[in-house]
């Protein structure tokens, strides 16, 4: 999801000492028993590595995610919307902070993770490489992007790694207002003037498919999810979550009076029995576009990274000043 490009690689060496195998077996038993793994507990090196990547990728996504919506804070069309949007983007910053904090419990520093993001080494969710072009995009993002995020985040509240799970619980508590805010914006637009409704439809047309891509490649082409599943870091498959998302969203779009930009969308009833139960089958996703986004060729990849680099570079003197003052104060107190 926010970690869609992640492949948990089982890169343990071929021959390992008996003690390590025993520890790993005990570790797996704890995970199987739904016990929480905490920061100082023994864990396989690969588990630690995968988690660092997954959690930091998630954190990077939150921070970069501030930019597309931050683009509209100064143009929010009412004071209520202005405050809500500023609070939402601030929450995203907070989520990034909670997640960096969780990642740091695994022995990596915020500075290292920041360097990975700014240098382009680390990935973040593809969705934030799309531009926000109208006010209606704020509605579409809250409704769809946050909606998709919530689908992924709720199961993560039960993930095996304690600090990550606890961060996710905090995130989920805050996230629910985000989706409601977005949907309310869409509702207001759809009930408004013809221009507003057209703005809403146009935004949905642009965001729908990228949101479906957020869940990552189809299960069939996903290489190494088994390990993440066994370690209870990933609790549902990409396709499962994507289907859940589509099923939840179709009636919501219907209520708004908007048309999802998928001519192949059709309801497929479950076999045998209640015809009202089933799933919404959707059309082909353009995975070529997804690959291009991941390769750095999306509309906003370069701008997003440039913005984060600029903030970091221009803020260096501030961070240095704070540390210099702290050092001076220590010396004065020691004297």
């Amino acid at each position: 999801m926010y970690t869609q490009a992640l492949n948990a690689r089982d890169d343990a060496p071929a021959i390992r000492p008996a003690e390590e195998l025993e520890q790993e077996a005990r570790f797996q038993a704890r995970v199987d028993a739904e016990e929480r793994i905490e920061a100082n507990d023994w864990m396989p090196a690969a588990y630690r590595k995968t988690l660092i990547r997954q959690i930091s990728q998630h954190a990077h996504s939150e921070i970069v995610g501030m930019l597309p919506e931050g683009n509209w804070i100064t143009r929010a069309p009412s004071l209520r919307r202005k405050a809500a949007l500023l609070a939402k983007v601030q929450d995203e910053c907070g989520h990034g902070l909670y997640l960096y904090a969780a990642a740091e419990t695994l022995g990596v520093t915020r500075e290292e993770l920041t360097e990975q993001l700014l240098s382009g080494k680390a990935k973040y969710s593809s969705i934030f490489n799309y531009p926000t072009l109208t006010w209606a995009d704020m509605g579409a993002i809250g409704w769809l992007v946050d909606g998709a995020a919530i689908m992924n985040q709720i199961p993560l509240c039960r993930c095996s790694y304690g600090p990550y799970a606890r961060a996710m619980i905090r995130v989920c508590k805050e996230e629910s207002f985000h989706q409601r805010q977005g949907y309310e914006i869409m509702l207001t637009l759809c009930r408004g003037t013809p221009e507003q409704k057209a703005m809403a439809q146009e935004a949905l047309n642009r965001w729908w498919w990228p949101c479906l891509m957020m869940f990552g490649p189809p299960d069939a082409s996903s290489q190494h999810s088994d390990q993440s599943t066994r370690w209870k870091i990933k609790r549902f498959s990409n396709d499962e979550l994507r289907q859940k998302f589509v099923d939840a969203t179709v009636p919501q779009a219907d209520y708004l009076g908007l048309t999802l930009p998928d001519p192949e969308l059709r309801f497929v009833p479950d076999e045998g029995g209640d015809a009202s139960k089933g799933h919404w089958a959707y059309g082909e996703i353009d995975w070529a576009e997804f690959k291009q986004i991941l390769a750095g060729n999306g509309p906003c990849n370069r701008d997003r990274l440039a913005a984060r680099n600029k903030a970091h570079d221009e803020g260096a003197w501030v961070r240095e000043a704070a540390m210099a003052y702290a050092e001076k104060r220590r010396s004065r107190q020691a004297a």
């Binding site: 915020r110 500075e111 360097e115 700014l118 240098s119 680099n309 970091h312 570079d313 260096a316 961070r319």
Partner: peptide, 10 residues
């Protein structure tokens, strides 16, 4: 890219 700027450890 920004190796200078990331030198400060807080």
């Amino acid at each position: 890219m920004s190796t200078q700027a990331t030198k400060t450890i807080t």
